[in-house]
């Protein structure tokens, strides 16, 4: 009897020791995991999550020129920006810009990816050319197009002139400036979108095409019935990324138009930049930044929700 209880007790204490060891082991592996992740977590905390919270906080205040909060104003900054004709113009331009750039970028890149995916000699060369704009910075691309749009010397007006048409103030005419910036942006973005779509095309199982060939399917039939459906996850990804990029546009505006003429090209990031670092209105600039954040959050959420089945990370 007593022997038995000793045995039980020792078994219990063994279990306790075992439990403790397991706990220690778990603690150890937790610390190890954290050590590997800590650098990233710290930097995300300092340069991403804290600034985001701070932006939301600032959006409820007035600030001085150094960015310190002075007066709590509640929703006033938001009410001000949504009644300000300049900010509303900025929102309108931003959405128009998305509308002008995204479909055309994706369409052209898709076309290029399809013709560059054929098994032909020399496609490697063409792929390199088509993706080249990815290696051209926003500053350089903007400078190229600044010249192309130049009212007197620019190639575009020289072509118009050749056909006996009037010159256009591409970057100074309110009717044309946003379109001009959009053309520049489309040209810049094609490289990246092309590369992604080409990658998508190449991952389509060639077996599908072979069996379609046996059935005697034509080129466009295969394109419509195999290529586009199989490519749809990639297309979806590319569309959302291009939209998000469009919302974040800054460099081409800064070099080509500085937001003018008449604020026609004052896209949201440029508007934030001007409000914060030219006018030193950090409160209302933060309110604008929160609007930008929500817009992009919605886009990413859409991406995760509808892309979920095909675009999975886990």
């Amino acid at each position: 009897m007593s022997m038995n209880s000793v045995a039980i007790r020792s078994h219990e204490s063994m279990e306790l020791i075992f439990e403790q060891a397991k706990k220690r082991q778990r603690m150890k592996s937790w610390i190890k995991g954290m050590l590997f992740l800590l650098p990233s977590i710290v930097l995300f905390g300092v340069f991403l999550f804290y600034p985001l919270l701070r932006t939301i906080y600032l959006s409820f205040f007035l600030t001085d020129a150094s960015g310190e909060t002075t007066v709590f104003v509640g929703w006033q900054n938001y009410m001000n920006i949504f009644t300000s004709p300049i900010f509303l113009q900025s929102m309108k331009s931003t959405f128009l810009f998305v509308l002008y750039t995204v479909p055309i970028t994706v369409f052209i890149s898709l076309f290029l990816a399809i013709i560059a995916n054929e098994k032909l000699k020399g496609t490697g060369f063409f792929r390199t050319i088509f993706s080249s704009s990815m290696g051209i910075s926003v500053a350089a691309a903007s400078v190229f197009w600044l010249y192309l749009f130049n009212p007197t010397m620019g190639v575009l007006n020289r072509i118009l002139e050749f056909f006996g048409m009037d010159a256009i103030g591409w970057l100074t005419n309110p009717d044309w400036a946003l379109l001009a910036v959009s053309v520049t942006t489309i040209w810049m973005n094609i490289g990246f979108t092309f590369l992604i779509l080409l990658g998508g095309l190449q991952s389509i199982d060639s077996y599908l095409y072979e069996s379609a060939d046996i059935d005697g399917a034509g080129y466009f039939y295969k394109l419509r019935r195999i290529t586009i459906p199989m490519l749809s996850p990639t297309l979806f990804f590319v569309v959302t990324v291009t939209i998000i990029n469009a919302f974040q546009t800054f460099g081409q505006i800064d070099i080509l138009t500085q937001g003018g003429p008449q604020n026609e090209t004052n896209l949201i990031v440029y508007s934030i930049y001007r409000e914060a670092f030219v006018n030193y209105q950090f409160g209302s600039a933060s309110a604008q930044a929160v609007v930008l954040f929500i817009l992009i959050l919605l886009m990413t959420a859409l991406q995760f929700k509808f892309g979920e089945r095909k675009v999975h990370y886990q």
Binding site: I41, P51, T55, A289, Y313
Partner: peptide, 23 residues
């Protein structure tokens, strides 16, 4: 933590650029 990493993709740098500049 994996979800935290995913969440970072939803925060555009441009939206937090003001506090970042101050930091």
């Amino acid at each position: 933590l994996f979800y935290v990493f995913i969440a970072t993709m939803m925060v555009p740098f441009e939206a937090s650029i003001i506090p970042n500049f101050h930091i």
